[in-house]
Design a protein around this nucleic acid. Sequence first.
DNA 1: CTGAAAGCGCTTACAG
DNA 2: CTGAAAGCGCTTACAG
Lengths: 338, 338
Amino acid sequence: MVTMQDVAERAGVTKQTVSNVISGRVAVRPATAARVRAAIDELGYTPNLVARSLATGSTKTVGLFVPTVGGAFYSEVVETAEDVLEEHGYHLLLCTTRLDGERARRHLAGLTSRSVDALLVAGDRDLIDHLPLLADARFPVALCAWETDAPVDFPVVTIDYEHAGFLAGRHLRELGHERVAVLTSPDHAPRVAGFRRAFAADGLTVPDSAVHIAAEPSAAGGYAAANEAFAADPALTAIFATHDILSPGVLEAARAAGRSVPDDLSLVGHDDDPEVRSGLGRPALTSVAVPTRDMARQAVELLLRALTKSGTVVNSLQLLRPELIVRDSTCPPRSARA
Amino acid sequence: MVTMQDVAERAGVTKQTVSNVISGRVAVRPATAARVRAAIDELGYTPNLVARSLATGSTKTVGLFVPTVGGAFYSEVVETAEDVLEEHGYHLLLCTTRLDGERARRHLAGLTSRSVDALLVAGDRDLIDHLPLLADARFPVALCAWETDAPVDFPVVTIDYEHAGFLAGRHLRELGHERVAVLTSPDHAPRVAGFRRAFAADGLTVPDSAVHIAAEPSAAGGYAAANEAFAADPALTAIFATHDILSPGVLEAARAAGRSVPDDLSLVGHDDDPEVRSGLGRPALTSVAVPTRDMARQAVELLLRALTKSGTVVNSLQLLRPELIVRDSTCPPRSARA
DNA sequence: CTGAAAGCGCTTACAG
DNA sequence: CTGAAAGCGCTTACAG
């Protein structure tokens, strides 16, 4: 392999001068700089990043932990993180934790060994117990996409999920709905709380009997949960599904039950998942859109800022505001029309 | 940061001895080894991987290029690659190329600088033009998930897509179908060729007019392409969709056209995508399942083998066999029943 | 079984 | 503006 020393000899200078023309941090006489550059081209020299890392103490890579890489949400997080990192000349070291705490712990331990300049941990369900391992990390750490129990020891950039639920609830309230159901997952408590707050603002209560946990995050899970909701309250006029992945199942269950959407049943989703947004002969979904890319970008930039500004991380909680996108799956209940 | 030297002083030995007990490659007297280990624990020492990399010339990380990280197929590739790497103590450096050749080229150039021990390139559509950049890479390179024009300069581990198409075609032929259509993408030529081969074996031709390119890989794309196929040949009795992502749209189009599946129309998919496999009130999909995980595992292991066995890469093309999974969306055509 | 030496390829002050 | 020196933290032969 061709080294900086080789280039130096070829150009008739010392390797420090080569280093200087490459880094550009020290002025070099144009003539010798040109000679150096010529030598670099002729030899096809490319700097050894590992040696540079050892000398500078920076690897120019940041680690990203995500529960999984499949699915619209986390794949956006990964791709956005990569984009931002690339803009700043950083590489991405990826670890998918698969909701497996032990696996996460192993990876965490691996990173501690100084192969990463900073670490972004996305998603909350798995490695919360192992976060203390990071307390004395030698590099900045930030968290994103955290919904419940955001740890206070690290900066967190996430979605205001409570507000997301509120937006869904307020929309249904404004349309005049009173008997509603929520289809959700155990991890989405804040969304449910926000939804309830919207109803509480009008003196209405969303009882526990109207909140149904979907057995799995899929169309099938949504289908079963919707039927459960219909059984629990045949008079309901609207449903809030706390993730869009459930929505196709809800629509199908409505069709099977002879309820037309939105005339007999309004449906508000969450995530604005593009894959389920338009349903082919089904109404386009009203949904709460979360600014996933903004979130990922903010989180990575926070980390990168900490890297340049002498490691000062401001420990803050940043909540990005979701937005309600009204489409065709919601309208006033029959009682409010007539 | 605590260094090997610190541990050595604490244990009253030199750093070489510490290195020896850590690596285990040179025998150390049990008593002193114990003292070293104690010192490591007390100091919380963890070796600096960058320094080790510079000394050994190995970074213990392999790069993975994928077009995207979303979608069932590539997310499986990524997660499997990560699993295999982890088993062998390697890290994953991820680059998503987004079907953007220029972006891929930049990343490629970045990696050349020796921060990766090996490179796996998955997917074919984007960086085929830039592959020559890798010709003189200083690390082993392998390709996977390549469907068309697999380069001959690198080992390739991929799916036998031609055989996949053949399996779909043979299945329909065995059921007795003669008038069929193919819904596909420009990248899936081998699948179409294999499908045609199955018909050709019985002296039948699948005309170009029966092959429809879906405008986009989505349910909507499948919907439109299916309607096109119905218009082109109202008498068709079966459809082969070369990726499952089209299938929900095909089913919906069939429903809209009053064709019941499988009675009036058989449908064979490809990929066995779990997300569309079971359709809630729709027939479960007959599909050609591709061994994605096996493929990714083989490719990574090939690379890892090259790394240990003194860089000897056997330049071969390995084709993994797909498998037909018969479910409820196919049956003999009416003409063959009665 | 343990220590002294050299080296991996770069960068960073520091002289000239 | 350019060169000589030291150092980043490890590993790898090589003596003892």
